[in-house]
Simulated scan of single mutants.
Amino acid sequence: MQFSQGTIEKRRTHQKRISSQSSIHTARKKLQWREQSLGYLFLAPSIAAFVVFLFYPLVRSVYLSTHLTDPRGRIAAYVGLDNFTQLLNSSSFWNSLGVTALFALLTVPAGLVLGLITAYLTHGKLRGMKIFQWIFSMPVVLSVSTASVIWMILYHPSVGMLNYLLGLAGLPGIQWLTDPSWALVSISLMTIWMNSGFNFIILMSGMQGISEEIMDSAKIDGASPIRTLISIMIPLVSPTLFFLTIVSLMHAFQAFGQIQLLTKGGPAESTQVLVYSIYKEAFINYQFGTGSALSLVLFVIILLLTAVQFLFVEKKVHYQ
């Protein structure tokens, strides 16, 4: 069967086109593979850090939670889920859980309200507002140890400023850190102040994203400052408030530094939160199995609280 010269040329052109497309496809695959390899190369340090400082400790905690350790912290015996059963039957665990829940209840809502009010008051472009913004954001630069020392001086029963002010008002002094009924409140006040800088900065950033036209329209309609805050500001910054609620709740359930420095879990375990119980079990009693089991329980609690917030609270968030 014979083909004309034109048909042969067409076939050759078609074959060249297929070969060219195949070469382009192969080149694109090579380029894509190189880009992916380069991306994984840049991610390698972060992945290594996650593996070393996150995934390995998590796996190690799961392993240790099923074992008992001797007084030197060495693995002594496999006990399965006995550590978890012992925790659930321990009054100390439930006391720590209750103290942690109360601490979160005292610090998270108050911290959000304080950050919201201070951000709203300094949101305007009036003269001198930069000074107040600097003052309200100052706690964010202080470490937990520095803040603890400052408040330890304020709480001093004889030379502390707080009892001095109470004396001027004719009220008796308070044993802020040694009275079981006041110790957790004292830690909570310090924590609210310590977290106020971060909350203020984040909420201030959220408010700066609100259009000036909306605020001007509210003023023209005669809305009061309180009405503007409740009806306009809070709905528009609700995504920011939702983020801060999650972060603040996580921080509250992981509080340790200020408790270790000010009260060491006392008096009478009135400030012994879950993280301090983990520290006490693992690094004071050298019961790494019980401490690991307690840390996993804390992990599950925080995970469940975060999931509940995403399932129910996020529905009330107004995304623009």
Rank of each mutant, 00 (worst) to 15 (best):
L43D: 13
I47G: 15
A48H: 10
A48E: 08
A49T: 13
V52F: 06
L54E: 13
P57A: 06
P57F: 05
L58Y: 13
V59E: 07
V59D: 04
V59Q: 05
S61C: 02
T66D: 03
L68K: 02
T69M: 12
D70N: 15
D70H: 02
P71K: 11
R74W: 14
I75R: 12
A77I: 01
A77N: 09
Y78F: 15
G80C: 12
G80A: 10
F84P: 11
T85K: 12
Q86H: 07
L87A: 04
L88C: 01
S92H: 08
W94I: 09
N95S: 15
S96R: 08
L97N: 14
G98H: 06
T100P: 00
A104T: 06
L105S: 11
L106C: 05
L106A: 08
T107L: 00
T107N: 01
A110I: 02
A110D: 05
G111V: 01
V113P: 00
G115V: 11
L116V: 09
I117S: 08
I117C: 03
T118H: 02
T118V: 04
A119N: 07
A119M: 01
Y120P: 09
K125S: 10
L126W: 13
L126A: 15
R127V: 09
G128W: 00
I131S: 12
I135P: 14
F136N: 03
S137E: 05
P139T: 07
P139I: 00
V140R: 11
V140E: 09
L142D: 05
S145I: 12
S145L: 14
A147W: 00
A147P: 10
I150A: 11
I153D: 13
L154M: 15
Y155H: 13
H156C: 00
P157N: 09
P157Y: 02
P157H: 07
V159A: 14
G160K: 06
L162I: 15
L162P: 03
N163D: 09
Y164N: 10
L166E: 04
L166M: 05
L168Q: 13
